[in-house]
Design a protein around this nucleic acid. Structure first.
Lengths: 195, 195
DNA sequence: ATGTAATCTTAACACTGTCAAGTTTATTTT
DNA sequence: AAAATAAACTTGACAGTGTTAAGATTACAT
């Protein structure tokens, strides 16, 4: 072994990325620390220099994927000249699209022990950034529409449940969504506008 | 060992029930064939007389749980003197309630490889009975309301996505649903009535 | 330069799913 | 009733898993 290869240099990041790769290939259950380590060319126990446990590495993978998603989501709401309402629709679409393009991610992310948030209206340090972004967009949207204060919480729940529900359905294995989910999501959110 | 105890008598059923028990105690990942076998007082390899693999046993567990849920759901829509609309609301409530009472079940059932259905309007032999029941109830409901034919599929998707979305949210770990989900679900489904 | 901390390897442990071979009981056939 | 067959179960083994302990190698700070 070359001396220069004893230290990997950036093993932590390499492990995270290899783990995500492997998950996309063989599913979450097929991910093992040893396989990921082998993929990075290091020994079985090497990951323990960077992670406390397998769960810890999975959490890091989840954060990484969520970060990637946030880039996509923020790009989707970047245009300034559109209405807050249109913005929220685009965000919902981008959110669902991301999960449809990466079917393994929904279960992985949404049932991660790290993902925490409260379905309330007040600003919080959400541990699930996409929800924080959605809440801010929905806030602007409802303000724009002139939604009365006392129904806003209900509207938030409705909107988020719809987005999450479509994402859940569209990523369930062996479930065919016969309609056009993008059109449907837009329509459902639109229909809810006047509530 | 007593001779009368060599053959368990009803090991298959006992394994299924012990597996479900264990899952409710330690989560799906904590379920191992060996623990389940031990819980039934048989050897590690005994389950292989009744199941092809661990996945096969998990499938059987899923069917068993789904059967239990169907009893609850059918009871919820048993009353004859209520409107089809009220009936569908009750079914939705019962569906979500069941998952809230058994938080581990949502992920377990909805991501089982056995659960299959198409979000279409035609009658099918669904492999997920709760969805079949819901589709029939929604059909009656939309008929009662006088929903035009061309929007029925969209309505079905909307209704089911809402129910599934609330169930998903309410069973996500570390996600607090601040509102009253039962009231909200009822209201969302009601608001969608006129669409 | 030397000491310390970080990074990595090897070896081992208990646990897992699964299979092969054999043992015990139930069921069917004669 | 006896024999043959099938079903249910046990023991023992195998490879793969997460995890730890002990030691080796390298980077870094003093």
């Amino acid at each position: 072994m070359k001396k220069s290869e004893y230290h990997h240099g950036n093993l932590r990041q390499a492990l995270i990325e290899a783990g995500i790769e492997l998950m996309n290939e063989v599913g979450e259950d097929g991910v093992s620390l040893r396989k990921v380590a082998a993929r990075c060319g290091v020994s079985q126990a090497a990951p323990y220099a960077h992670f406390e446990s397998k769960a810890d590495m999975l959490n890091a993978m989840q954060e990484h994927v969520t970060g990637q998603m946030m880039q996509v989501l923020e790009a989707a709401v970047a245009e300034k000249e559109v209405s807050a309402y249109e913005n929220m629709l685009r965000l919902g679409e981008a959110y669902v699209s991301f999960f449809i393009e990466h079917p393994a991610y929904f279960k992985f992310i949404c049932y991660s022990p790290q993902v925490k948030f409260r379905l309330v209206w007040e600003e919080e340090k959400e541990v699930y950034p996409p929800y924080g972004l959605f809440r801010r967009c929905a806030d602007a949207c409802l303000r724009e529409i002139g939604q009365p204060e006392e129904t806003k919480l209900y509207c938030l729940a409705n909107l988020w449940a719809t987005v999450q529900g479509i994402a859940c359905l569209a990523t369930q294995p062996n479930v065919e969504y016969a309609g056009d989910w993008k059109k449907d999501l837009r329509r459902i959110l639109t229909d809810g506008k006047e509530m």
